[in-house]
Write a protein that binds this DNA or RNA. Sequence first.
DNA 1: ATAACATGTGAACAGTCATTCATATGTTTG
DNA 2: CAAACATATGAATGACTGTTCACATGTTAT
Lengths: 120, 120
Amino acid sequence: MPESNDVERCGFLFVHRDTVRQVTEQMPEDEKLYDLAELFKVFGDSTRIKILYALFEAELCVCDIAQLLGLTQSAVSHQLRVLKSGRLVKPRKEGKTVFYSLADEHVRTLIAQGMEHIEE
Amino acid sequence: MPESNDVERCGFLFVHRDTVRQVTEQMPEDEKLYDLAELFKVFGDSTRIKILYALFEAELCVCDIAQLLGLTQSAVSHQLRVLKSGRLVKPRKEGKTVFYSLADEHVRTLIAQGMEHIEE
DNA sequence: ATAACATGTGAACAGTCATTCATATGTTTG
DNA sequence: CAAACATATGAATGACTGTTCACATGTTAT
């Protein structure tokens, strides 16, 4: 943690005090920023992205996802846990099998937006 | 890496061969999925999110960002490098100081979409 | 009840990452 | 040129993460 005394100063901020105020007023609370970073962290793994893409088309059980993507059942289960705790997918239990599907439409929009940035 | 012989099979995929086809046809190439994950990884850190939020309001130099967010100059510089290589911010050199600003509007949209998901 | 099956989970390991510290690069000023 | 300043960078460290392996849990069928 840096000193609270402003050891570092380049002089620009003193000229634009209103900018400082705007930034600090607009900035969300630390907890929200942390949560936001956590959300993006969930998208930040190619295995999880693959799983989400698979669920774009249809509800699938753990075993299906594993086969379809060439992954271990255990790996898929671990990642579904992460996706579930991020509220990106939701489970539906039917006997001994569990079907997963996208939790809401934000998932599609976010991934689509990301793809746009990649492909520009 | 799992066996190519399908050791694991739960039987559901055989019933819906068209679903398998849909998923595999719709799935982007591995490289694109990897790049997409890389992009989200850049958003997946609260320090970088803070920096982006600060740049929402105004173009800022490294020193300004450090002061404004209570971070080390070195830490900010390292993170700006990550943000720059992800094409989320762009630099503008003016003498010895370097001003950074958002690279395009996707940044705002993506963060806004993420916030929506958090706050729902 | 026992066996077969689908999924969940904990420990362990290797790889990745953010921060700090020291220092280098490049620019302006005296 | 030398000193001051803004920024960049490389190495080191501690923390976190994804996968694998072994096994536990819970369900269905015989």
